[in-house]
Design a protein around this nucleic acid. Structure first.
Lengths: 227, 227
DNA sequence: AAGGGATTCAAACGAACGTTTGAATGGTAG
DNA sequence: CTACCATTCAAACGTTCGTTTGAATCCCTT
């Protein structure tokens, strides 16, 4: 309980977390060895096990460090929105901006590693390891419930099950947009210049998702196979 | 050049490909060891290196086996659409159905491993290994160009760069929808029953994406930071 | 029946993995 | 100054990895 407990210890921990964030994004969890990780962080090989206990615990710490504040910012943005509306129903695309804004904001933080993390996060939603997906899901639960309730109020005529799916589509769009960097170039044939402009990207996402979320219910076209 | 060359050799190859497809989906590429893979396939440990050369070459073979026919089916569906329209502009959501249909169709093929593959594919778009993403991208190029041209004809008033992004969003929605199985439950709080009904899912996706793709251009809301 | 190329097999290879160990080192409190 | 606890360090642990090897086996051709 001395000054030591807050000064130097966090130094090594932070260096490890920063290196892990970048290497996990570049090579994946299993593709990042402890030797590469610790040498990049400039710490001893045993430091990860000393400070975090194991590689798995380090992975968890990497996500907790960023995800808790990010989801808190999302909920705070939604709170602000509802307070300012003072009872009036919210526009769906305003809720969308409250959700995607905090994650897009990290894209512009290339220096601090925020962009690295956001790409790592986008990919990890579909990680093979169930334990990792469970961890991320668990960190999302509180924010998820708030936003689901907000969308239900904003789209009262939408059937609950349809809304669940559309929110699922929305997360997919966001996660993939953040994680995939190659596909835009594949479609475009060249590299778009504004790939890292968070404001422009938020406008594009809000237009696309706002329209999709509130879309009229499907008129099934594939009736040829139906009764 | 005997009968042998076509009869028994494919037996072992196919068993390996089937086992790889399932295990890669469950545990990822690096999380699937050759020993687990070959024992699940019921073949000798050395069989993979004998028939495919290496583990990486096996990964490539797994994707080529399914992806080439799938993208061919997409292009064929688009061809049929354009032929039937006989010069008339296509509806965006018809093009969408031509694209998502062949992949959704595999979802219902649980027995043959199609569902496994489609989930594996959805996750691999964002795989850490650049070589794997490059392989997949390369297998997509022909279909991608055809669909991009089709969307440009269907949405002539849409700026090219905006369209590129919206197609990117669309791929994201599809990839994530196919790959992520936990998030729907996370949002819903329970497991939706119709998770594997391809026709219903296609209707939902067509409604969501069709509206998002053709959405009016964004009115930037975050002007407070602009000049 | 004999020969031969394709395939399977058990066994072993060296390398890399995550983790553990016990001694050295550092700064702080008594 | 000394004792102490947290941290760092070099070295080694046992395990598992992808791949290779050379002999055994199979099936077809001659």
């Amino acid at each position: 309980m001395s000054l030591r407990a807050v000064k130097p210890p966090h130094e090594t921990r932070t260096r490890i977390l920063d290196a892990a964030e970048e290497l996990f994004m570049q090579h994946g969890f299993e593709g990042t060895s402890m030797r590469l990780l610790t040498s990049k962080a400039g710490v001893n090989l045993a430091a990860v096990n000393y400070h975090f206990g194991s590689k798995d615990a380090l992975i968890e710490a990497v996500f907790r460090r960023r995800l808790d504040p990010m989801n808190a910012a999302r909920v705070a943005a939604l709170d602000r929105l509802e307070r300012d509306a003072s009872g009036q129903p919210l526009a769906p695309d305003a809720i969308i901006r409250a959700f995607v804004g905090p994650s897009l904001h990290l894209i512009e933080d290339a220096k601090g590693g925020g962009r690295n993390f956001i790409r790592l996060l986008g990919r990890t939603y579909t990680d093979p390891a169930k334990a990792i997906r469970a961890l991320i899901g668990q960190l999302y639960v509180p924010a998820m419930e708030r936003f689901k309730a907000a969308f239900e109020r904003a789209l009262p005529q939408m059937p609950r099950e349809e809304l669940v799916w559309r929110m699922h589509f929305m997360f997919g769009t966001l996660a993939y947009t953040l994680a995939a960097t190659d596909t835009v170039q594949l479609i475009a044939g060249c590299k778009p210049e504004d790939r890292h402009d968070a404001r422009l990207l938020e406008d594009r996402l809000a237009a696309f998702l706002g329209c999709g979320l509130a879309a009229p219910l499907a008129r099934p076209r594939s009736v040829k196979k139906a009764a």
